[in-house]
Write a protein that binds this DNA or RNA. Structure first.
Lengths: 282, 282
DNA sequence: CTGGAAATGAAATAAGTATTTCATTATAAA
DNA sequence: TTTATAATGAAATACTTATTTCATTTCCAG
């Protein structure tokens, strides 16, 4: 109980992490709160924090004691100190990174991270500007009406395809990922039935496999395309086509915008399903 | 005295500036302190702030009253709020988006897209704030020194794992994706050799397979972890651990921040390789 | 089961803090 | 200079908040 207390929040967090397993049920609950919501801890009163962490106030004091502090307030100081010292606002960090990248020819990972996050944010803003409401509604409708949805995408696009399949399954939609294992993508594509739908994702350099898959699908199966250019070889076959401009940093392209779009379609679908259920039951 | 008080710190600061000249000597002294040392005001007690601003405690209360607040504590809230909200602009937008979508019972896909993009932007800002330079450098070094890198992640994390593998191969690094086909993840993990590295990605609810994989790796193989909480079961085994807070909209989590981090590490590695080559050839 | 130790939570108590009061001092107008 | 008014600060008070206590429950080891 009278062991030496941690002197920084980082130290405390390390100790909490290390001892997490050995703590009692309630103390573990507090541990969670400390790690997950440090800002609330920094400002809150014992009563408020106790309420939000769903423990009695005394448990907070016990927790502090268990980590060597005199009392809760003593521990809280660490949380406050952290908040005071580090508030390098986003803008400040951008400025620092920029300055640094100009003075040294060495490209540090932190600079890269700054560039990627910034570019991705720009891409997000673009996405919302350029995506059309009708297309979005239509895409949702297509999947909603389909008995099953097949998704195809290779190389970089595979990541998006994979996520799409995950998201759809997550909301209880039948989703099949055409992964081309053993080069059998054509065969996988022929398993599509008339009432299914196909989602194809393809970026430069457009994998021919994706195009092949589309060509092999039965007539009448609706196609949703996510690609990076109006001139992509896929656009002409699409019932709905999303042209997504991804962030590009040092000739490397992101996928965040496409992922965000996929997520939106999936959740939009979830709401559609829910609404139709409620609507028809009344 | 009972005028309407400012509602944000910015408003208060504006008012202080405007009325600065008309204030009495002591109140002006307080005004100075409020403007110059807002962080101390946010955390300090009346007694401490009074001491540091070299005025009696009562003057602080008078100052607060003069600007329309009930008391000092009331005014202090503004200072605290400022410190809590990390990204006022985007948080505001998220809040507005949420509010808007609550007024109508129908949730349109476009509204969802607005929410997702906004939340993802916030997540990007958080990412750059919370990722530590040293960790980033260390992660790059680990992969740089490894003969081959193995990547493991199941369910949602699989998408990130997949992208990581893609990105590493793209820059000519040997990367193996532990996909657990046929439940053989343990066997896949045992193929790691001493000089390899392992990257593990795991989010709630932490798949036990990932943990199993880690446990099966040979001793001494360095481990890089990407997860969503300091208390994740993986952190304790990690040589480098990134805790990434993903955007969450309507209880659906994104992956954009993790993807961005993966991208950064991969490209950071590419630069490292390039720099080492140039360095040694001179 | 059963006894004993640890954990828990409600309530009492202690500590700390903000606010108000009021006597005193400075300021400005007549 | 005088007087009315505003400003000021030390100390008392009222409040809030942290901490401790103790009766009760839970959890194990025997």
């Amino acid at each position: 109980m009278t062991s030496i207390p941690p002197e920084t929040l980082a130290e405390l967090e390390a100790e909490i992490t290390a001892r997490h397993k050995t703590l009692s049920k309630r103390l573990r609950q507090v541990a969670h709160f400390m790690i997950e919501r440090p800002k609330e801890v920094a400002f809150g009163t014992v009563a408020i924090i106790a309420r939000d962490a769903d423990v009695p106030p005394s448990t907070l004091v016990r927790f502090a004691n268990a980590f060597g502090f005199q009392g809760f307030s003593d521990m809280q100081k660490l949380f406050r100190a952290k908040l005071v010292e580090e508030t390098p606002s986003y803008n400040e960090r951008v400025r620092l990174a920029r300055k640094h990248s100009q003075t040294s020819q060495h490209t540090s990972p932190m600079e890269l991270l700054e560039e990627f996050t910034t570019s991705n944010m720009v891409a997000m803003e673009q996405l919302i500007k350029e995506v059309n409401t009708n297309d979005l509604e239509k895409a949702v409708s297509i999947i909603y009406c389909a008995q099953a949805t097949h998704i195809v995408g290779f190389r970089r696009s595979f990541v998006v395809a994979c996520y799409f399949a995950y998201a759809l399954r997550h909301i209880d939609q039948r989703a099949f990922l055409i992964d081309g294992v053993g080069g059998l993508y054509r065969e996988q594509a022929t398993t599509l039935s008339k009432n299914d739908a196909l989602i194809a994702i393809s970026f430069k350099p457009y994998a021919t496999e994706t195009q092949d898959t589309i060509m092999s699908k039965p007539n009448g199966v609706p196609l949703i395309v996510i690609t990076d250019s109006q001139l992509s070889p896929l656009t002409q076959y699409a019932d709905v086509c999303f042209v997504v401009k991804e962030a590009e940093v040092r000739s490397f392209r992101s996928l965040t915008a496409s992922l965000c779009l996929a997520q939106t379609i999936a959740i939009g679908l979830a709401y559609r399903v829910e609404e139709e259920l409620n609507g028809s039951s009344q």
